[in-house]
Write a protein that binds this DNA or RNA. Structure first.
Length: 799
RNA sequence: GCCUGGGUGGUGAAAUGGUAGACACGCGAGACUUAAAAUCUUGUGGCCGUAAGGCCGUGUGGGUUCGAUUCCCACCCCAGGCACCA
């Protein structure tokens, strides 16, 4: 019997598929219903394709092939996110220019992706660092600029001292740089921002999206919508009015003091020439420094001082003394907060500095109420708390009274209803070399001038010194910097910062269907043919970065009438992580598994099936060098069974039941179960070889999981056409019903016997058969209280 | 602290109210072989028993149910996310 060498036959099939155009979709006019199957595109790194890529792409391809066989026109493109820090850092490390390393790494990765044998369309040549692409990234910037959604301002920003660049809030994790893990510090800089906050409310609408609940929750949490009231306040002795946000305005009568952020610009103004100036500003400085230097602990680092100023009688309960406090944030609300006995932080602060408190809400239990009155503890967020003030709401419950109190506040003119968000604008400037230049020119006469669309692209200059120094390396290219103002023609200077790479990756799915378009970023017709992405697969780490940015940019484009789809990604799935001996793979731990050697030894089909067999796709799995041999054995056994001529007598049942079971598992992306079902079937096939028709059914079922193997055997059976032109097999219901059923017989819920009964057996037959079992009879001698019969499953007695 | 997941044999895991451990790795025994590898057959949750069978067993403790890995309550542990947001 012929032996199979997958590594030898795979190249043949990859070449044939390419020749036949298996992965080419008819982009202008799909003949079948379209299916846009996308994986988050990789950045080209020197580490080449690692196991995480495979764990992503192999199942994506299996899914795409399944959809193809289910009758869809599948478009499964692949490109490269080739601008950005990973490519640049690799270049710095190797001392080779990023343009060169990027080129080399992309070519290598294309070869490796090709070796997967997927339906990925790599001929689109979508690379974010090519002028053909970044021209349109700059165009996207200009669209936002036109709508006032791109603006420049000076602000305290996150600075990574190691990457020598600013970072967006989303790229700071736990106070550290998302990329290099260095501690992030704060700096005041003038930078470009995208006004994502204008889309806060729109981004909270997930209607029609099939996304993991967890991811939606993470985004909602990040956007941080909060309903409340803005109270009108006035600073005593100054002509300064402002608003103070309160998300729980029910207890407004309890406010007894006010706090201001240490870095609030107002603070220096009101303290100027004040007797307390020195002390207060010293305290503010201390707080600011501490906050910037390290991760802030609310309790440990609580600090503050009285400013000598007051907020003028906002609630009719007298003036509120204004304190500087360490727990107030400058960039949420107005940076000034009014404080009460019903907030834990306020309570703790007041206790520490001896500031009077005035509780207005109490527990029903009089003993507890007395404790609250005596300020023994902070009583907060209690729906059933009884309000004593204001007079109009005396006796009402805290939770239930909220709406009426807000209405009362609005009516009396004390304040008005507002919604606050935690989301901040997206800082897109980067002081790094390997990114798309921001298409802006600064002119002494005209100020900030956008580059006209007809002048795009602003070509990314070649510089030899691209090592980051804190200012953009682009500033070192005089030919790039010095230009004529597009408006007045006078000498002007270009913006030298580059765009965050996340800008480039926020719209690539719009470009894919029309990747060669040199006249527009995309044609609306093609975008409307293919968008939204039907299935988007990638890691969960992008929940509040790429996935949020892409939705924002897409919605801006939608609002500009450039694409009909409201959302970019209809369905989203996150793959799990591959571990080694339960630990994350990392170079420092030295436990990295290199796919190439396993693919060379066993073939792509074995490798990809093992990845899918390891565990549930969305949960990941643990890599084991030995485990892959199980799949290799399965492939050998399968091939052997397929070469054996047989009658297949009595096998229709098991074949069709596998079609049903594995088919369902595939559709639910439970690839591990599908592979296991195929293994079980193979074990049965070795006992009773199948006939040709049965074999064909099985091959269609296996095809998305092991495309090369299926194709090879399909050809062996005498077929000239690809198995991927076949349809996805359906089980014949006739074979899904069994003549007999094994019933479990339980006495008091404990298994005592099993009985084989005809599928049609009645309750009476079943009970009688069960009673006849010796091991059942001995347990039910004492008399049966209740009989249970679940057709097809269980016979039970309660004694 | 808060929000998500999750905790099942030696290992990866399956089962979402109905025979716990499918499938696979590993391990034991046997066949083939001069031998080994590969392959094939067979066994494999723990304890008692020659066996039939019994008892225990899905993080811990309670509950609902004839019956719970699955549902409910409390707690412990692990992973991920958020974390002064007034």
């Amino acid at each position: 019997m012929a032996e199979l060498s997958l590594p030898q036959i795979e190249a043949k099939w990859q070449a044939r598929w390419k020749e036949a155009g298996l992965y080419k979709a008819n982009l202008d006019a799909p003949e079948k219903p379209k299916y846009y199957n996308v994986t988050m595109f990789p950045y080209p790194s020197g580490d080449k394709l690692h196991i995480g890529h495979w764990y992503n792409y192999a199942p994506v391809d299996t899914w795409g092939r399944l959809m193809r066989m289910k009758g869809f026109e599948v478009f499964q493109p692949m490109g490269f996110d080739s601008f950005g820090l990973p490519a640049e850092n690799y270049a710095i490390k190797t001392g080779v220019h990023p343009a060169e390393t990027t080129r080399k790494n992309i070519d290598k990765m294309k070869e490796q992706i090709g070796a997967i044998g997927g339906m990925f369309d790599l001929d689109l040549n979508l690379e974010t660092s090519s002028p053909e692409y970044y021209k349109w990234s700059q165009w996207v910037f200009l669209q936002l600029y036109k709508k006032g959604l791109a603006y420049r301002k000076e602000a305290p920003v996150n600075w990574c001292p190691s990457c020598q660049t600013v970072l967006a809030n989303e790229q700071v994790q736990d106070g550290h740089c998302e990329r290099c893990k260095s501690e992030v510090i704060h700096k005041n800089l003038t930078q470009w921002f995208f006004k994502i906050t204008d889309y806060s409310e729109k981004l909270l609408d997930y209607e029609g999206l099939e996304w993991p609940e967890k991811t939606i929750l993470m985004q909602k949490n990040w956007i941080g919508r909060s309903e409340g009231v803005n109270f009108k306040c006035k600073l005593k002795w100054f002509d300064h009015e402002f608003e103070v946000f309160d998300s729980v305005p029910q207890t407004f009568k309890a406010q007894t003091f006010s706090v201001i952020a240490a870095d609030h610009p107002l603070l220096a103004k009101i303290m100027k020439d004040h007797p307390l100036e020195k002390e207060v500003m010293a305290c503010a400085d201390r707080i600011s420094k501490k906050r910037m230097a390290k991760r802030f602990e609310v309790d440990e680092d609580m600090d503050g001082i009285f400013t000598g100023h007051y907020i003028e009688n906002p609630y009719g309960t007298g003036d509120l003394p204004l304190w500087v406090a360490s727990f107030v944030l400058m960039d949420y609300g107005s940076g000034i907060v009014n404080c009460s006995a019903h907030d834990e932080r306020d309570f703790a602060f007041a206790k520490k500095y001896g500031i009077p408190l005035h509780p207005v809400m109490f527990p029903e239990d009089p003993v507890e109420a007395e404790k609250v009155k005596n300020l023994e503890y902070c009583y907060h967020h209690a729906d059933e708390g009884v309000l004593m003030e204001p007079e109009e709401f005396k006796g009402r419950r805290w939770g239930e009274a909220r709406k009426d109190i807000i209405a009362h506040i609005e009516k009396t003119g004390m304040g008005k209803r507002v919604i606050n968000y935690r989301l901040r604008d997206w800082l897109i400037s980067r002081q790094r070399y390997w990114g798309a230049p921001i298409p802006i020119v600064y002119c002494d006469k005209c100020g900030e001038v956008p580059v006209p669309e007809s002048d795009l692209p602003v070509v990314h200059p070649h510089v030899e010194d691209y090592v980051p120094k804190g200012t953009s390396p682009l500033a070192g290219a005089p030919d790039f910097v010095n230009v004529k103002c597009p408006k007045c023609g006078e000498a002007a200077k270009r913006e030298v910062d580059t765009m965050d790479t996340f800008v480039c990756s926020s719209w690539y799915f719009l470009r894919y269907p029309d990747a060669q378009n040199s006249k527009e970023a995309w044609s609306k017709k093609r975008a409307d043919t293919w968008l939204p992405v039907d299935m988007y697969i990638g890691g969960p780490e992008h929940a509040c970065m790429h996935l949020l940015y892409a939705r924002f940019i897409h919605k801006v484009m939608h609002d500009a009438g450039l694409v009909d789809a409201k959302e970019p990604f209809k369905r989203l799935v996150h793959q799990g992580m591959v571990t080694k001996d339960g630990a994350k793979m990392s170079k420092s731990k030295g436990n990295v598994v290199s796919p190439d050697e396993f693919v060379a030894k066993y073939g792509s089909d074995v490798f990809r099936m093992y990845l899918m067999f390891m565990g549930p796709f969305t949960e990941g799995g643990d890599w084991n060098d030995r485990g892959i041999t199980g799949v290799a054995r399965f492939v050998d056994r399968f091939y052997r069974a397929m070469q054996t001529e047989g009658s297949g007598e009595g096998m229709d049942k098991v074949v069709h039941q596998t079609v049903a079971r594995a088919g369902q598992a595939m559709e639910k992306m439970n690839f591990n179960i599908a592979v296991a079902a195929m293994m079980e079937l193979t074990n049965a096939m070795l006992q009773t070889p199948l006939n040709k028709g049965q074999k064909e059914l099985v091959l269609r079922l296996l095809a998305p999981l092991a495309p090369h193997l299926a194709e090879e055997v399909w050809e062996m059976l005498g077929h000239k056409e690809s198995v991927f032109n076949e349809s996805w097999p359906k089980a014949n219901p006739e074979f899904l019903v069994n003549d007999t059923v094994t019933y479990a017989v339980q006495v008091n819920g404990k298994l005592r016997a099993t009985v084989e009964l005809a599928a049609q057996a009645t309750k009476e037959d079943a009970l009688a058969a069960a009673r006849a079992e010796a091991n059942v009879a001995k347990y039910i001698e004492s008399g049966v209280k209740k009989e249970i019969f679940v057709p097809g499953k269980i016979i039970g007695f309660v004694v």
